[in-house]
Design a protein around this nucleic acid. Structure first.
Lengths: 137, 137
DNA sequence: TTTCTTGCAAAACATTTGCAAATCG
DNA sequence: CGATTTGCAAATGTTTTGCAAGAAA
């Protein structure tokens, strides 16, 4: 299982994720495929998602709410989730290496992958709250 | 709704979470209550969990696998998840302030809460893998 | 009484699985 | 042929909801 076997459902699922500007769920991927006239079984969607994730083509995200979301961006990036409107923004800032090194030294754990989620207020919601009170909280 | 109303199920759920050394799921909390002879409905467990989380008494965790876990520790700490045995370790190292400041400057997002998850190998699994090959992957 | 809380059963979702049919090399 | 993949339907597991009954203010 060395080479990538991009069967039709896998290719279709991958294309939806790569074209998306958000982080679609399995259901949303299904919907978008249907809108394109492509029809697959849920089992095939999930099979494809697992396959693509295992082969490093996409990333699984747990942004909360118990639904798995998918991301076609492979380079390291962090997710910023607005607690007010739910918008998800991204930052390309890398997790500081000395932060990781310190944790490895402290715990003996070997960090391979970082998954950082910041919750707070997006610029829009921040501005809207600021318009109502002096100290948005 | 200013003061904390710790009804029996809420108090029982909170006690289970605070006593736990792991990060139990709703089902595990239910099981532990049953073992103590206490019986509540699932709806009451979930109601209590939502109430306690909204009132800052506990933290909801998404450590993966689509199940919500709960943590009674309120001070900032990070979770280290072993990709081999599933163990969850913790580190008290704080997310570097300049990391957050940089992201806020870059994006305009206002960070209120950090949620950092490191995936990798716990010391035990790391050692076991090292025993088998020179460069554990 | 008015409001909040509990608990049961049913519902709502997300995800997985069993298995037969289809596909591919 | 032999291995892999698809697709359907059913099962699984978690969490939510509707609503009647109970407790508290």
């Amino acid at each position: 299982m060395q080479t990538l076997n991009l069967t039709p459902p896998r290719k279709a699922v991958l294309q939806v994720i790569q074209v998306a500007t958000d982080h679609p769920t399995a259901t949303e991927i299904m919907d978008r495929l249907n809108q394109q006239g492509q029809r697959f079984a849920y089992a095939s969607i999930y099979n494809s998602l697992r396959y693509l994730a295992e082969h490093g083509m996409i990333q699984e995200l747990n942004l909360g709410n118990g639904v798995t979301r998918y991301d076609g961006r492979l380079a390291e990036h962090q997710h910023l989730i607005c607690r007010r409107c739910g918008a998800v923004m991204e930052s390309t800032a890398a997790v500081p290496l000395d932060f990781i090194a310190g944790i490895e030294k402290e715990t003996g754990f070997r960090v391979e992958q970082s998954d950082v989620r910041f919750v707070g207020l997006c610029p829009t919601c921040w501005a809207e709250l600021a318009a109502h009170r002096v100290r948005p909280g």
